[in-house]
Design a protein around this nucleic acid. Structure first.
Length: 414
DNA sequence: TCTGGGGTCCTAGGACCC
DNA sequence: TCTGGGGTCCTAGGACCC
């Protein structure tokens, strides 16, 4: 989907069309534009149906922002100023101070995400989820999927999505996922690109290595250090040389990728491996000085993960924490229980013990709680015997490790 | 005015078992 | 004595993606 979050916001605020708009920043400063309109013009009806009538100059600008956060999406008008995803908001404010800044509204994005995905599935059922705004589609067995190299079907999908949602997308059609992803970037926004194996030398090799999905900043820097900047240069490297410098697995993958080779299937179903909640504080916090605040946040994170697990019907047995210090260094600690759980206080206790294994030398900027090794809750409840004897399944499976002689209170660092 | 939040996968070492 | 060859599970960190 093209500039997905921003495009969804423009559906609500069409008066912002064509303007530099960015989505991001802090989560909770809901600006309540309607409330301010009611104050200014109490005689008018400022219910939710009138969002489109809010004057443009009422919207908050990047220059008025202070605090932490990154840009999640920028409209194409904002990108013209050099503003882009993952950029710090304060940095973006320097580049384009007059850009309109809107807070993220995941509820809304998820709604449109489900909508466009279901439209695609009605046309071509083999779909792999790649997050809120991206999917892979297998055209192979869709009637007409091969016509004009896939262009006919791609056009149909684009039209159906736009008709139903008002949103645009870009589609790349190619023999595999790696190339399809790259093709989809070649003609944005609202474009279609058809890419055949024969086109690789012309259309892919001139691109920067970083354009390959799977080459990130680190691998790119290392390639550049060896004088390899473009995919064509990467393709020219001996396979053995790549194995030697990038390891057996990654080196072989690099070589294949540069030649457009990718055998991965389109995977339509998958089970989650972990669920987590994390938060970056507005100001870095001190373990002791801010103990109370940290304790509250920590408890809330545990409750949120527990609620997520329960809502989605999963239990997990590896409980972990994540911290990021003021120097941006992160540490994680985890511990595997003998019981599967989705219970907030069980998570809270195990996570509390993990915290005690961390050396706090710096202020903390981020705190997170994670539950991994997930299985469906319904599968665990099938465990025999436990319920009848009134024992938790842990006693049946295995003895839990003895807890140190501390109370719950003492187990908590915060 | 640095640098969100939610994920997956890989690597590597060590414990432990047969 | 001085030392094997699997295999699995756990933990920590890190790269990468949307």
């Amino acid at each position: 989907m093209d500039a997905f979050y921003a495009s969804v916001e423009l559906l609500r605020y069409p008066q912002l069309k064509g303007l530099p708009v960015v989505i991001g920043g802090g989560r909770r400063r809901e600006d309540d534009l309607l409330g301010r309109m009611r104050q200014q013009q109490p005689e008018r009806d400022w219910s939710n149906d009138h969002l489109a009538e809010i004057p443009v100059d009422m919207f908050p600008r990047l220059k008025g922002y202070s605090g932490r956060g990154v840009i999640t999406t920028a409209t194409y008008a904002a990108r013209a100023f050099g503003v882009g995803s993952a950029m710090g908001v304060m940095k973006a404010a320097q580049l384009c101070p007059d850009a309109i800044l809107l807070p993220v509204d995941f509820e809304q994005y998820r709604h449109y995400s489900r909508l466009f995905k279901s439209i695609v599935r009605d046309i071509a059922p083999v779909v792999e989820d790649r997050g809120v705004d991206e999917i892979y589609i297998d055209f192979t067995d869709v009637p007409g999927g091969q016509r004009e190299g896939g262009r006919v079907l791609a056009r149909l999908i684009q039209k159906c999505i736009t008709d139903a949602t008002g949103l645009t997308c870009s589609i790349g059609v190619a023999p595999n996922k790696l190339l399809a992803k790259m093709a989809s970037e070649l003609n944005k926004p609202n474009g279609i690109s058809i890419l055949f194996m024969e086109d690789i030398a012309d259309k892919i090799w001139p691109l920067a290595c970083r354009k390959i999905n799977g080459i990130g900043p680190k691998a790119d820097a290392k390639l550049q250090a060896h004088g390899i900047h473009r995919i064509g240069e990467l393709a020219q490297q001996e396979r053995a040389w790549l194995l030697e410098h990038f390891g057996k697995s990654y080196g072989a993958w690099l070589h294949d990728a540069a030649h457009g080779l990718d055998e991965r299937p389109v995977v339509t179903e998958s089970e989650p491996v972990s669920m987590s909640r994390e938060t970056t504080f507005e100001k870095d916090l001190h373990v002791r000085h801010d103990r109370a605040a940290l304790g509250d946040i920590f408890t809330r994170l545990c409750q949120q993960v527990a609620a997520d697990l329960q809502r989605k019907g999963y239990v997990g047995k590896t409980i972990g924490i994540k911290l990021r210090f003021d120097n941006f260094q992160s540490v994680t600690r985890d511990s595997t229980l003998s019981v599967y759980t989705a219970d907030a206080s069980t998570i809270r206790q195990a996570a509390g013990l993990c915290l005690k294994r961390v050396d706090f030398k710096r202020r903390i900027r981020l705190l997170g709680v994670r539950v991994g090794s997930l299985v469906k809750a319904s599968d665990v409840s099938l465990m025999p015997v436990a319920a009848e004897k009134g024992l938790s399944s842990s006693h049946v499976l295995q003895e839990p490790p003895p807890l140190k002689d501390t109370t719950h209170e003492q187990a908590d660092l915060f």
